[in-house]
Computed example of a mutant assay.
Amino acid sequence: MAALKSETGEYEGEIGSITFAGRDAALYQVSCEATIGEASVSYQVRENLALPGAVTVIVARSPASSAPSPASSAPSAPKPRPVLASARGHTFDVPTNYPAAFSLWRQQTASLPLEGRPWVRSLRGTAAEVRSVRVDGSEYLYGWVCEPHNCGGNEVALLLTRDQGRVVGLVRLTNENRETNDFQVGSPTAPEARCLRFFLEDRSDATRCF
């Protein structure tokens, strides 16, 4: 008890409960938990082999009630605001102009059946200019690209947020039997899905979808 009080003299109050927490026979020590005033202290009591009958107290950690360090009490720095991209270039420029969005596009199209159609994932095809559009009141950038020399029924429409944190799309492909199939990319919401179809099929320079 005296050895513990001496080692933990920085804590005020009387030593209260002491709880045995374990024993390590190889190190000749026991682990304990104690309360000193309002503080909780974990420590080890180790036999002092140089002085038989004496013990050494090793405090394992600071009490939970100790004051926070200056680093932990300092206010956190404000997070930088994302840089919002503006409409520029053509859809085949997305890999260069919007690299974060393009990375998402590559991830989200990896599971599509695109054998022989590398232009879908690379967006390297006949393309329209990227333009700003509004979808259900929210602002997006819209791009369109189609298969070179085979545009009819082989095209992609995509929407990306200006912070490049979200990309959704509609991929339309026509097979050798002239059957057309649509594939959604990025789990678009119902308004996004309706607007992707609208922009893809309207063929206009519309900048707003309901």
Rank of each mutant, 00 (worst) to 15 (best):
M1E: 10
L4C: 05
E12A: 15
E12P: 03
G13I: 09
G13L: 10
I15Y: 05
I15D: 07
F20G: 02
D24V: 12
Q29H: 09
Q29N: 11
A34G: 04
A34K: 04
T35L: 14
T35R: 15
I36N: 03
I36M: 09
A39T: 01
Y43T: 07
Q44D: 13
E47W: 10
E47T: 09
N48C: 02
A50L: 11
G53E: 15
V57S: 01
A60M: 14
S62P: 01
P63L: 05
A64G: 14
A64S: 10
S66Q: 11
S66L: 07
S66P: 00
A67R: 15
P70G: 06
P70T: 06
P70I: 13
A71I: 14
S72H: 12
P75Y: 06
S76I: 12
S76V: 15
P80C: 10
P82T: 11
A85Q: 09
A87G: 06
G89Q: 05
T91E: 05
V94E: 02
P95I: 08
P95Q: 11
N97G: 06
Y98Q: 08
P99R: 01
A101Y: 04
A101C: 10
F102N: 00
S103P: 05
W105T: 07
Q107L: 14
Q108Y: 04
A110E: 11
L112E: 09
L112T: 02
R117T: 01
R117Q: 15
R121W: 08
S122L: 03
R124E: 05
G125S: 06
T126C: 00
A128N: 12
A128I: 01
E129P: 11
R131L: 02
S132K: 10
V133G: 00
V135K: 02
D136V: 12
G137W: 02
E139A: 13
Y142L: 02
Y142N: 00
Y142V: 01
G143H: 03
C146Q: 12
P148Q: 11
N150R: 13
N150H: 10
V156A: 08
V156R: 04
L159R: 03
L159I: 02
L159P: 00
L160Q: 14
L160N: 08
R162V: 08
R162K: 15
D163V: 11
V167G: 04
V168L: 05
V168K: 03
V168C: 01
L170H: 02
R172D: 02
L173S: 04
T174R: 14
E176V: 11
F183W: 13
S187F: 01
P191A: 00
R194N: 09
C195T: 03
E201R: 13
D202W: 03
D205N: 08
D205T: 07
A206M: 09
C209I: 11
C209Y: 10
F210V: 12
